[in-house]
């Protein structure tokens, strides 16, 4: 439809116009092992360039202000030789894939996170003083995520564990559909603190396809909200120990009273089989 002899070619929305770190120095303020970054107007890669650069200079604690949607915060910090893991405080609104592939650092968000927080996270901690979007903790393999408020669709999808490495996700509010879908390991605690008395959790298809790990769910849920691969059990003393520990950690982050949280009824959701699809084939 365009008869001019011009090809549009390709524009790179991520990398076009990315400025070198040397042009961004005014965004960083370093003070010994602490640094402050003003993320206003920084592109995704620019902010992560600065974080990596700052980390390599030996800074271990960074506060990043004016974050509006910058993605992959923490992802570029795979630095096996770093003496000490970093702590990064972020406000108000980090973008998608916060802490994707995170390698042991600690991210604290004062505000809301978006989709993909903790995607394929390896180790470390993400603490969100707010809510998070869809697929939180997708394929997470280690570390801990604490979220004060709600999460979107498919939280904890395909979370997995191996031997000593057991990831944990604690959610203060409630979740949307397909919560714990495909879960293959790890511990998920859904507290429902913002539900009113007797209000059900909202999610449907909870734990559909689940074949590992455990979900501890506080508050009401109807059987038909669960996927057919999950069974409900009562908590035993070992479970209470686990729940107690995470709830107290959660409470200390966000200023709740753990005893009050633990008073309410908890249920344990377990996969009925580690091989949910073992029988659907004809050989």
């Amino acid at each position: 439809m365009n008869n001019l002899n011009v090809k549009f070619g390709l524009r790179n929305m991520f990398l076009d116009g990315v400025r070198p770190v040397s042009e961004l120095v005014q965004h960083v303020n370093t003070n010994g092992s602490n640094a402050y970054i003003d993320a206003l107007g920084l592109k995704h890669k620019e902010l992560n360039d600065l974080l990596r650069e700052t980390a390599l200079k030996g800074v271990t604690s960074i506060t990043v202000q004016n974050v509006f949607g910058q993605r992959y915060i923490g992802t570029r910090l795979y630095l096996p030789n770093l003496a000490k893991k970093m702590e990064i405080k972020i406000a108000p609104n980090p973008g998608n894939d916060l802490g994707a592939f995170l390698n042991g650092h600690r991210l604290i968000v004062y505000g809301n996170a978006q989709d993909g927080a903790g995607n394929t996270m390896d180790d470390g901690e993400i603490i969100i003083h707010g809510r998070a979007g869809d697929i939180v903790a997708m394929s997470m393999r280690g570390g801990k995520i604490f979220i004060r408020d709600n999460v979107g669709y498919r939280a904890a999808i395909h979370m997995k564990e191996y031997t000593g490495k057991v990831p944990a996700l604690v959610i203060g509010g409630t979740a949307q559909d397909f919560f714990g879908e495909y879960m293959a390991g790890g511990r998920v605690i859904l507290l429902g603190l913002n539900l009113s008395k007797n209000e059900r959790h909202k999610a449907h298809y909870i734990g559909t396809g689940m074949h590992g790990g455990v979900i501890y769910l506080r508050g009401r849920v109807e059987e038909y909200q669960l996927g057919k691969e999950v069974g409900i059990r009562a908590l035993d003393s070992h479970d209470w120990e686990i729940v107690g520990q995470y709830v107290s950690e959660f409470s200390s982050h966000f200023g709740f009273d753990p005893a009050e949280i633990l008073q309410e009824k908890f249920q344990k959701l377990l996969p009925v089989s580690t091989r949910p699809y073992g029988k659907i084939y004809a050989y």
Binding site: K45, D115, E161, A184, G212, T274
Partner: peptide, 29 residues
């Protein structure tokens, strides 16, 4: 990095990719 003896299930989609701009997100991740 999964326990011995459990099915290793690969979902049909990558659940962080439901569209082309999501693919872009994973590429850059």
């Amino acid at each position: 990095m999964i326990p011995q003896g459990t099915d290793a299930l690969s979902p049909a989609p990558q659940h962080d990719i439901y569209s082309i701009e999501d693919l872009s997100m994973l590429i850059y991740a």
